[in-house]
Simulated scan of single mutants.
Amino acid sequence: MIVGDAKPLEEILRMIEGRPKVLVLGCRGCVTVCNVGGEKEVGVLATALRIARKKRGLAPTVDERTLERQCDPEYIEELADVAEGYDAIISIACGVGPQFVSERYPKAPVFPGINTTFIGGALAHGMWSERCQSCGDCLVHHFGGLCPIARCSKSLMNGPCGGSAGGKCEIGPEVDCVWHLIVEKMERMGRAEELERVWPVKNWITARDGGPRRRIREDLKL
């Protein structure tokens, strides 16, 4: 799941300053699950913008819309009749959303309403933790199903650093040392000897370092 944080209201107000007709555009995908960009959050942000603009003597025209997803062209197409009639569209999807809307509607000024932070999972209600850096070459099966790239503060592939203690990372007592967890898990599975393997420097060309990535599935293309 892609996790994000809402931008401060004042930052959004500065972005749309001088733009009277505004659309707050939500997404029913990941950002709904992490409670920053779904239909409820669209309503909250739109109301806050109306109140703030009215207090400043500005036109409070703020419309609301939530798409099934902002990362699929078929849903972006639902805005065809209205998108370019707005002075500002505030996308509260992940970082893909404002880009897809901007690309489809080149005359529409689109602004991000959230900060995309990481790919993670829910630990508890209202709590998410990073689990993946989308490096493009998943190796978690060699590490007990745990990712040292995303979960080690130094992305170490060959065991823990010298700073961990008591199963915790040196950056803070609230952060588990993933290498401590990896060793424990591999020992429980009777596979601890596999950790003696020395991994070479990771080839990051499959990650973002190789440039913007694209995948084409010929079996799915129409």
Rank of each mutant, 00 (worst) to 15 (best):
Pro160Tyr: 12
Cys161Gln: 11
Leu181His: 07
Val201Gln: 14
Gly159Leu: 09
Arg131Trp: 00
Arg151Asp: 00
Gly126Asp: 14
Cys177Asp: 12
Glu193Tyr: 09
Gly113Arg: 05
Val175Leu: 13
Phe111Lys: 07
Glu193Asp: 15
Cys135Lys: 01
Ser153His: 13
Gly144Pro: 04
Arg197Val: 11
Glu174Val: 03
Gly126Glu: 10
Lys202Trp: 14
Met157Ile: 09
Glu193Gln: 14
Phe118Lys: 03
Gly136Met: 03
Met157Tyr: 08
Glu193Trp: 11
Gly166Asn: 14
Val101Leu: 01
Cys135Arg: 02
Ser134Gln: 10
Trp179His: 07
Ala150Ser: 13
Asp176Ser: 04
Ser164Asp: 06
Val110Pro: 07
His125Asn: 14
Cys147Leu: 04
Cys135Pro: 00
Gly136Gln: 08
Asn115Leu: 04
Ile182Asp: 03
Gly159Gln: 09
Asp176Trp: 00
Lys168Ala: 12
Trp199Gly: 00
Ser102Arg: 11
Pro148Met: 09
Gly126His: 05
Ala108Ile: 05
Lys168Arg: 15
Ala108Arg: 04
Phe100Gln: 10
Lys154Trp: 00
Thr117Gly: 02
Ile149Leu: 15
Pro148Gln: 06
Ala124His: 03
Val140His: 04
Pro200Ala: 09
Gly163Pro: 02
Gly136Glu: 07
Trp179Asp: 04
Val140Arg: 13
Val201Ile: 14
Cys138Gly: 00
Arg197Asn: 07
Gly172Phe: 07
Leu156Phe: 13
Thr117Tyr: 05
Gly113Ser: 06
Glu174Asp: 14
Gly145Phe: 04
Ile114Asn: 08
Met127Asp: 07
Met186His: 02
Val175Trp: 13
Gly159Ile: 08
Glu196Gly: 15
Gly167Tyr: 08
Val101Asp: 01
Phe111Thr: 05
Glu170Ser: 05
Gly172Tyr: 12
Pro112Cys: 07
Val201Gly: 05
Val110Gly: 10
Gly159Ser: 10
Glu174Ala: 08
Cys132Asp: 00
Gly172Ser: 15
Pro148Cys: 04
Thr117Arg: 15
Glu196Ser: 13
Leu181Asn: 09
Gly162Gln: 06
Gly121Pro: 00
Gly162Asn: 08
Val198Cys: 06
Val183Thr: 13
Gly144Arg: 01
Glu130Ile: 09
Ser153Pro: 11
Gly136Ala: 06
Ile149Gly: 01
Glu194Val: 03
Gly145Lys: 08
Gln133His: 12
His142Gly: 03
Val140Glu: 08
Phe100Thr: 10
Ala124Lys: 11
Asp137Ile: 02
Phe100Lys: 11
Glu196Gln: 14
Trp179Thr: 01
Asp176Ile: 05
Ala108Phe: 08
Val178Tyr: 01
His180Gly: 09
Val178Cys: 02
Asn203Thr: 02
Trp199Thr: 06
Cys152Gly: 05
Gly167Leu: 07
Pro112Val: 01
Glu130Lys: 15
Gly113Trp: 06
Leu181Met: 13
His142Tyr: 13
Glu193Asn: 13
Ile114Leu: 15
Gly121Phe: 05
Ala192Thr: 09
Val178Asn: 03
Ile119Glu: 02
Gly121Gln: 11
Arg131Gly: 07
Ile119Arg: 07
Ile114Lys: 06
Ile114Gln: 00
Gly172Pro: 11
Cys138Tyr: 00
Lys202Arg: 15
His141Phe: 10
Pro160Ile: 10
His141Tyr: 12
Phe118Pro: 01
Phe118His: 13
